[in-house]
């Protein structure tokens, strides 16, 4: 497929067309090949500077972006909230403009506020890549999930994807919903009614509170982390009850189709949303997701970084 990429920023999957998503995936295919070579580095972004600006803590995503940038030969600087001037009261806009004044070409932003990457993208000439904004979007996670499904199942169209857990506060869920539905998948959201409001049905998905009815028909089960450190207690009565009602236990996993994929964006809580044996089982592609994340992020940095002036 040939198409021209003309976005300097990647803010979310909602704004992308199916063609654009497929183009990123195909670009990622090529970069995945690079990862199998003895020399894993290409000169695509040589001379460009990438700043990993993580206002909210992250290990996996930051490391993945950092490694992706290194493999593209970009220069990388990491800044976290605690080491930035945000703690001194500087506004996000001022911090970012200072970074741009240092001629940063690409800014990878993780932020607790929905819309923060768009806010910066509208104000900066640099590329802005959303590495997760509040409960809004986490587009590279959505892309790597889709990439992994497509790699294992050969397609996305007509697959039944079940996303389980804390949907309300999940940017991963939203990026998956936007991306998967554009590519023709059927998406079912499962979780307690407090964390999966019916309002989500207006996004073109099905909402269910009964995991046992949904699992036998699933082609993919994507389990989201139950973020109990952040949950206000009124959303569900306890972790034990959550596991009883919604956990992917060994027993429940037996009802899955043999070729159903088990996914998780990590970090996993073993024994809470997923039993340890299931996380490590044959149907689990959790570590493939991590590997594919690198290829997807290389593709995104390559495409957007090539547009930024």
């Amino acid at each position: 497929m040939s198409m021209n990429w003309n976005r300097k920023d990647l803010l979310g999957l909602r704004e992308l067309s199916a063609d654009e998503i497929n183009f990123i995936l195909e670009t990622a295919d090529a970069f995945k090949q690079v990862g199998t070579r003895e020399v894993k580095k290409v000169p695509a972004l040589r001379g460009k500077t990438l700043i990993n600006f993580f206002v909210e803590p992250s290990t996996r995503t930051r490391t993945s972006f950092e490694l992706a940038a290194h493999r593209l030969s970009a220069d990388v600087i990491n800044i976290s909230a605690t080491t930035s001037s945000l703690t001194k009261g500087e506004t996000l806009k001022d911090t970012a403009r200072n970074l741009e004044a240092l001629h940063a070409d690409i800014l990878v932003l993780r932020h607790s506020s929905a819309g923060a990457p768009q806010f910066l993208a509208e104000r900066l000439k640099s590329s802005v890549i959303n590495a997760g904004d509040g409960a809004h979007e986490h587009p590279t996670q959505g892309l790597l999930d889709i990439f992994t499904i497509r790699e294992k199942r050969g397609k996305i169209d007509n697959l039944h994807i079940v996303i389980v857990g804390d949907i309300l506060f999940s940017r991963v869920a939203r990026s998956n919903i936007f991306g998967l539905t554009k590519l023709g998948a059927r998406v079912t959201l499962v979780g307690p009614s407090t964390l999966v409001p019916r309002e989500f049905e207006k996004l073109g998905v099905t909402v269910s509170n009964q995991i046992d009815k949904v699992l036998p028909d699933a082609d993919v089960v994507n389990l989201l982390r139950i973020q109990h450190e952040r949950q206000r207690k009124e959303y569900f009565p306890g972790i034990g009850e959550y596991t009883t009602l919604f956990g992917l236990t060994k027993q429940r996993a037996k009802s899955l189709k043999p070729d159903c994929l088990v996914m998780h964006p990590g970090p996993i809580n073993r024994g809470v949303e997923i039993d340890s044996e299931v996380a490590d089982g044959l149907q689990s592609v959790i570590l493939d997701q991590v590997t594919n994340g690198l290829a997807v992020r290389m593709a995104v940095l390559y495409l957007c970084g090539g547009i930024a002036t």
Binding site: A114, G115, D133, G134, A135, H136, E137, R174, E199, F200
Partner: peptide, 11 residues
């Protein structure tokens, strides 16, 4: 609270 808050992930 409604469609747009759900879509945008804003409280």
């Amino acid at each position: 609270e409604g469609y747009w808050s759900t879509l945008l992930g804003l409280p």
